[in-house]
Amino acid sequence: MTPPLFIITGAMAAGKSTIAEALAKRLPKSVHLRGDIFRKMIVNGAAEMGPVLDDEARQQLDLRQLLATDAARAYHAAGFAVVYQDILIGQDLVAAAERLADLAPQVVVLAPSVATLAQRDRARAKTGYGENFPPDILAEALTRETPRLGLWIDSSAMSVEDVVDAILGHT
Results as ranks from 00 to 15, higher is better:
residue 113 S to T: 12
residue 103 L to F: 09
residue 159 S to N: 04
residue 56 E to P: 00
residue 150 G to S: 05
residue 14 A to V: 04
residue 159 S to H: 02
residue 1 M to F: 09
residue 143 T to F: 09
residue 152 W to T: 11
residue 130 G to I: 01
residue 15 G to E: 08
residue 131 E to Q: 12
residue 5 L to W: 09
residue 22 A to T: 00
residue 80 F to S: 11
residue 24 A to Q: 06
residue 146 T to Q: 12
residue 144 R to I: 03
residue 30 S to Q: 05
residue 41 M to H: 08
residue 22 A to G: 03
residue 51 P to M: 11
residue 66 L to A: 11
residue 151 L to R: 08
residue 51 P to K: 15
residue 51 P to A: 13
residue 87 I to Q: 00
residue 128 G to P: 07
residue 31 V to H: 01
residue 99 R to T: 05
residue 161 E to A: 15
residue 69 T to N: 07
residue 62 D to K: 13
residue 159 S to M: 01
residue 4 P to E: 04
residue 5 L to R: 02
residue 17 S to V: 02
residue 117 L to G: 04
residue 30 S to I: 00
residue 60 Q to M: 09
residue 27 L to E: 05
residue 80 F to V: 06
residue 118 A to K: 13
residue 83 V to E: 05
residue 1 M to L: 10
residue 139 A to S: 15
residue 68 A to V: 02
residue 27 L to K: 07
residue 94 V to D: 02
residue 124 R to F: 00
residue 97 A to V: 06
residue 161 E to D: 15
residue 61 L to D: 15
residue 14 A to K: 09
residue 127 T to H: 14
residue 132 N to D: 15
residue 88 L to T: 02
residue 74 A to I: 01
residue 60 Q to T: 01
residue 148 R to S: 13
residue 67 L to V: 05
residue 96 A to G: 04
residue 115 A to Q: 13
residue 89 I to D: 04
residue 55 D to G: 01
residue 68 A to T: 00
residue 64 R to T: 01
residue 157 A to K: 09
residue 120 R to W: 14
residue 49 M to F: 14
residue 79 G to F: 09
residue 132 N to Q: 14
residue 4 P to M: 01
residue 112 P to Q: 11
residue 84 Y to I: 04
residue 28 P to A: 04
residue 125 A to T: 12
residue 25 K to R: 13
residue 115 A to I: 02
residue 72 A to M: 00
residue 168 L to N: 09
residue 106 Q to W: 08
residue 78 A to R: 11
residue 6 F to C: 01
residue 171 T to Q: 08
residue 159 S to Y: 01
residue 112 P to F: 09
residue 161 E to F: 02
residue 148 R to G: 00
residue 24 A to S: 15
residue 81 A to R: 05
residue 25 K to Q: 14
residue 65 Q to F: 05
residue 15 G to D: 09
residue 125 A to I: 04
residue 56 E to I: 10
residue 75 Y to F: 15
residue 92 D to W: 11
residue 134 P to L: 10
residue 20 A to R: 02
residue 43 V to A: 12
residue 141 A to P: 06
residue 4 P to Y: 06
residue 135 P to Y: 11
residue 8 I to C: 00
residue 68 A to P: 03
residue 44 N to D: 14
residue 112 P to W: 07
residue 40 K to M: 12
residue 133 F to T: 02
residue 86 D to I: 03
residue 58 R to P: 05
residue 29 K to N: 15
residue 164 V to N: 05
residue 152 W to V: 08
residue 130 G to T: 01
residue 135 P to C: 03
residue 13 A to I: 00
residue 127 T to N: 12
residue 73 R to V: 03
residue 25 K to I: 03
residue 146 T to I: 00
residue 144 R to L: 13
residue 83 V to S: 00
residue 150 G to N: 08
residue 62 D to T: 07
residue 111 A to F: 09
residue 90 G to D: 03
residue 160 V to D: 01
residue 52 V to A: 14
residue 107 V to P: 01
residue 17 S to A: 06
residue 99 R to D: 13
residue 132 N to T: 13
residue 37 I to M: 14
residue 106 Q to L: 12
residue 166 A to P: 07
residue 109 V to T: 14
residue 78 A to T: 07
residue 142 L to T: 08
residue 36 D to Q: 04
residue 170 H to K: 11
